[in-house]
């Protein structure tokens, strides 16, 4: 078994674990973690399986770098919205309840 295949297998394992967590857990922070681990799994597959030319292929490396930047920004955005949501509702999970739209938002524009 080559090292590259090993990378890919570990990546697939990480994705499976994280996807399980993402669907089972309701805590929003845990789901952000799960998203990040899923991302790492995909990056492992990218650097692992995509090196099929017996030499280092620069394209997957560039993709993973870009992917990491995107994942970091996504995490930052999710954390920011979560903080604000937590401050307003003191809830750490999304329930049907806090999706119900109040009748008030059109009438009470924030000045």
């Amino acid at each position: 078994m080559s090292a590259n295949l090993w990378f890919a297998l570990v990546g697939a394992g990480l994705i499976a674990l994280a996807a399980f967590t993402f669907f089972v857990q309701t805590h929003l922070l845990r789901r952000i973690f799960a998203f990040n681990i899923m991302g790492s799994g995909v990056f492992l597959i990218m650097v692992g399986m995509a090196q099929h030319l017996r030499q280092t292929d620069p394209v997957p490396q560039a993709l993973v770098l870009t992917g990491i930047v995107v994942a970091v920004s996504a995490t930052a955005l999710a954390l920011l919205i979560f903080r604000r949501f937590y401050a307003l509702s003191a809830a750490v999970t999304l329930t049907q309840d806090n999706d119900t739209l109040g009748d008030s938002y059109e009438q009470e524009p924030r000045q």
Partner: peptide
């Protein structure tokens, strides 16, 4: 507000 933040998340 709470509703739109939940929807956004």
């Amino acid at each position: 507000n709470r509703q739109t933040l939940a929807a956004g998340l």
